[in-house]
Simulated scan of single mutants.
Amino acid sequence: MAVIAEPVAKPISRFRFVLDRRDVLETVMVAPAILYVLLLVGLPLLLAVFYSLSAYTIYNPTWKFVGLANFEQILQNPTFLDTLRNTFVFTFGSQLLGLVLGKFGAFLLLQPFPGRKIVRALIILPFAVPVALATIAWQWMFDSLYSVINWTMIAAGLVTREEAPNWLGNPYLAMLCIIIINAWRFFPFAIVIFLAGITAVPQDVIDAATVDGAGFWRRNYQIILPMILPMVAIGLIFGIVFTFTDLSIVFLLTMGGPGGATSVLGFEGFQTGIVSGDVAHGAAISLFMLPVLLVVVIFTLRFIRRREI
């Protein structure tokens, strides 16, 4: 009589057993992101702190501890205070303008019209175009001689050739120019946020408000906007952080001019630490952004928590 051998069970891999645990799997999946942040954010931050507490320059690359002397010196510098003011004006001015454009753009894209899908696809271009190419195009538009904006106003009879504004030569107009360019880059992101928020509002809530007699403005500013405000505030945090630390538009368009009227913290830190070689003061200027952004983020998150419904 033949004996049929029973199949031998294969031993379970210890590695497979470990990955079946949820806490271990979560750690493995999150580890690359944590490593990325530590190497590309944490390490440069520690180096910036290291240099800001020293007298390190490229001409004298020896580390000498000076404590908070670098921060005291930049705070006593009137140029730095003007740069800090310019940074706030540039950041909040462009974010406010971008949110306004994004809100009205979202309402327009919610309306049915021919070619709406194509417009929705094209509206993302300002956010996707490389900042260097976009800024060069805007530089031609604001050129003192070949500005298409000036030529249009002259052709429309609004101004004469002698009265045409020198966009990049006037301190106030130059600040307005960099605000417009950054708002132009930001508003597609704002449109996406508003579209996502508005479409997420339950239709029965809007219908009930309409039945109760709420018009267009009351529906949007007393019902829809409070409901999507947390989502908008999160997008605003990202916009503020990226704008506050940005130097590309200023570097490519005005180089901080005229007369330092458009110099911002990112540009000033680059000019001081990299171009001038004063690494210690450049690191101190860059680190000054950290507490300011931390206060803004904490204030915004507390505002979101109070307004959640």
Rank of each mutant, 00 (worst) to 15 (best):
A2G: 09
I12P: 01
F17D: 09
L19I: 11
E26G: 09
M29V: 14
A31D: 05
V41R: 06
G67L: 11
N70D: 12
F71M: 04
E72M: 07
Q73H: 03
I74K: 05
N86Q: 03
N86R: 05
G93D: 05
L96M: 12
L101H: 00
K103R: 08
F107N: 05
L108R: 13
P114V: 07
I118T: 14
V119P: 04
P126T: 12
I136Q: 10
W138D: 02
I149F: 14
T152I: 12
L158K: 11
V159P: 10
R161T: 13
N166D: 11
L173Y: 05
M175E: 02
M175V: 05
I181N: 00
I181A: 09
W184M: 08
R185H: 10
F186P: 00
I191K: 00
I193W: 10
F194M: 13
A200F: 06
P202M: 07
G213D: 06
G213N: 10
A214H: 11
R219S: 12
Y221W: 14
M227N: 09
P230W: 13
M231F: 07
I234K: 03
F242A: 01
T245R: 15
D246R: 08
P258V: 12
V264H: 00
E268N: 08
E268H: 01
G269N: 04
Q271C: 06
T272Q: 03
V279D: 01
H281P: 01
G282C: 01
F288K: 04
M289Y: 07
L290N: 02
P291Y: 14
P291T: 06
L293G: 10
L294M: 15
L301K: 04
L301Y: 13
R302K: 15
I304V: 13
